[in-house]
Design a protein around this nucleic acid. Structure first.
Lengths: 150, 150
DNA sequence: TTATGTGTTTGAACAATATTCAAATATGAA
DNA sequence: TTCATATTTGAATATTGTTCAAACACATAA
């Protein structure tokens, strides 16, 4: 047994997919070379970043999903991007945004379970200097992710 | 001019992509038939939902991104999914979660600009019975989306 | 209006890739 | 060990992506 599964999941999270030109051509009834030309144009403009897979995260041991709100110390207000970039590096992190309102950052995180999430908060979030408060909003049910209804 | 672009964007948001088996095979140095077998298994298990494109949303006129927190009236606590599903239908909605804490729902929305977002709130959100309060957290900067760093 | 340059569409030929199939191998349970 | 089931793999085939050159569309300026 070669245990290919985790390797595939890792690759599919950030790419290793490609458009189905022939199927699109059939669907909208245009020549495949026209589709090809237009897709390449979108890619060259940078409008399309990558092609990737969307998972049923429960089935790949990432069923625990949390929105984490973060408030920074006033001294960090001028460079919130430093902390944001550090946090974005980690594979548990689906998204990172600087936002308006009572909190400076909002992260979407995926972990296997509560324990794994606790470890992430303990080892990554709480070690980051400049964070003053956090608040976890645990997802009880995900109805739509990445524009995909579940 | 056939204006293929918007059609492609629509299709790529929810699929019409496929894994690059040969490239994966080269990357992890395994026969492509082995990769093929393992991918089909993941698909049949339902672990992989779809293959799709991730965009630079600013370049496809969806640069305005908001996290919308929603509190429900106590009478809706028993059926939060009804409202959640209604909201999830709309194409502006990237994600919908039922969450713990001070709010019942969190939505991630993408629109062209503030005006278009306002129209969505006015026409869709505020018409939904059972919503008691909302709070918008506007994204000032997106550092990572859908596991893709920007 | 016509001329000119640029961007888009398209079919034909070709290159690369996905898929099928059958055989070999591995794995776990009795 | 034996058996049933799951996984790996190469060879053949089917399907798809890509290249290329020509035709066409569109905008601009003379």
């Amino acid at each position: 047994m070669k245990n290919i599964k985790p390797k595939l999941i890792k690759l599919f999270k950030e790419g290793y997919c490609t458009p189905q030109i022939a199927r699109i051509a059939r669907t909208i009834n245009e020549p495949s070379t026209t589709i090809h030309y237009n897709i390449k144009k979108l890619e060259n403009e940078g409008a399309i970043r990558i092609y990737k897979a969307v998972f049923d995260y429960k089935k790949i041991n990432e069923g625990f999903c949390v929105y984490l709100l973060i408030a920074l110390t006033p001294s960090e207000y001028s460079t919130p991007e430093r902390i944001a970039k550090n946090l974005a590096k980690h594979e548990e992190v689906e998204s990172v945004d600087l936002v308006t309102g009572d909190w400076e950052l909002i992260l979407k995180l995926r972990a296997k379970d509560q324990d794994e999430y606790y470890n992430f908060v303990k080892n990554v979030v709480s070690r980051e200097k400049g964070i003053v408060t956090t608040k976890s909003m645990i997802s009880l049910k995900q109805l739509k992710t990445e524009f995909v209804s579940l």
